[in-house]
């Protein structure tokens, strides 16, 4: 625009030309952005359609029973993914139950002035670096470090609280609980980084206003800051949940890959992602279709969760 102002007094023709150039630039940027936006949606659609088409033979032969039966038998080609759906939801739920309070707590802590900036920034950086650790490495860490470390704790749970169905099986190391714990570590950086970002972005007037009205620091954080940053926090949780449900390598290495549904968190289980990762390489043709059907279901599960989150955010914002 500054170049336009410079040139305009000298030549009228040039002004028109300049305006034209700007308009062409604006237009092309607009269309580029439109193509980009539609393209991303298109890729998603492409993936979904391709998976759907490849899964079609399985959808036709197993139908809705696929979701409600518990057998996965590649020898007889009988497939059902209820234990995997259960395992996916339970392990993600364990991860969220741990990661949400811890994550939001740390995010608040790092966005307030409890610590000097020189300490806060390295901590925030270190947390974000957890997200950069490859999942295979986290899986190996789970097998060789975390499981031996947790074994006494698992034994304690089983021996003293075995009467609660949640801890009613002898601990075997690889279990839904182990997977949930490791997933919670993996999704913490997502929750912390995004929640902290939205807390920092809040206008300063909010905090000052609350304090001026006589609110304590607790009240300011719980009643003013967190509700104001709510949509950002929920967004971070949804991203984290997506990661927890779709995590493949760590799940395949730690969940125990047992095709069963038990109330006990100490028992091995299976997730949809671990099932696909484990069996794809050696799968026969019908089995490949069944695995892709399972993949489609994982996509739909994630979609449902995201829609639910959207509804929660909408509702809350209306109240506000």
């Amino acid at each position: 625009m500054s170049s336009l102002a410079e040139h305009s007094p000298r030549k009228g023709q040039s002004l028109e030309k300049q305006v034209d150039t700007v308009r062409v630039f604006d237009q092309s940027f607009y269309w580029l952005a439109v193509i980009g936006a539609i393209g991303i949606g298109g890729v998603l659609l492409w993936i979904a359609v391709q998976i759907g088409l490849s899964a079609l033979p399985a959808i036709q032969s197993y139908g809705v029973d696929f979701l409600t039966t518990t057998t996965w038998d590649p020898v007889r080609n009988i497939y059902g993914v209820l234990p995997q759906i259960y395992g996916t939801l339970i392990s993600a739920a364990i991860a969220l139950v741990i990661a949400i309070p811890v994550g939001i707590g740390v995010a608040v802590f790092l966005s307030e002035n409890f610590l000097p900036n020189a300490v806060r920034t390295p901590i925030a950086l270190a947390i974000e670096l957890i997200a950069a650790v490859p999942s295979v490495v986290i899986g190996l860490w789970g097998i060789y470090v975390l499981i031996p470390f947790l074994r006494p704790f698992y034994n304690f749970l089983y021996e003293n609280f075995g009467w609660i169905p949640l801890f009613s099986t002898p601990p075997r190391g690889n279990s839904l609980l182990t997977l949930g714990l490791v997933l919670s570590v993996m999704i913490l950086p997502t929750i912390i980084a995004i929640s902290r970002g939205s807390l920092i972005a809040l206008p300063r007037d909010l905090r000052q206003g609350a304090l001026a009205l006589g609110a304590t620091r607790w009240e300011t954080i719980l009643r003013v800051l967190i509700p104001a940053a709510f949509s950002g926090i929920v967004g971070s949780i949804m991203l984290a949940l997506g990661r927890a449900m779709g995590e493949t390598m760590v799940a395949a290495m730690l969940v125990g890959n047992s095709n069963q549904i038990t109330p006990s968190l100490l028992a091995p289980g299976a997730t949809i992602a671990s099932l696909i990762a484990s069996q794809f390489g050696e799968a026969g043709r019908e089995q490949v279709a069944a695995l892709l059907y399972a993949g489609l279901i994982l996509m739909i599960l994630t979609l449902i969760v995201n829609i639910l989150a959207e509804i929660i955010i909408q509702k809350f914002q209306n109240v506000e």
């Binding site: 590649p74 290495m253 890959n257 069996q279």
Partner: peptide, 29 residues
Amino acid sequence: EAGVGTSVDWPTGVGAQGNEGVAAQIQQN
């Protein structure tokens, strides 16, 4: 009853990835 295959419907056990995964599972537990 689970038949013969490269993967079967196991009646029991903990599943690990690859020979090295099963070897680790045995050594660790």
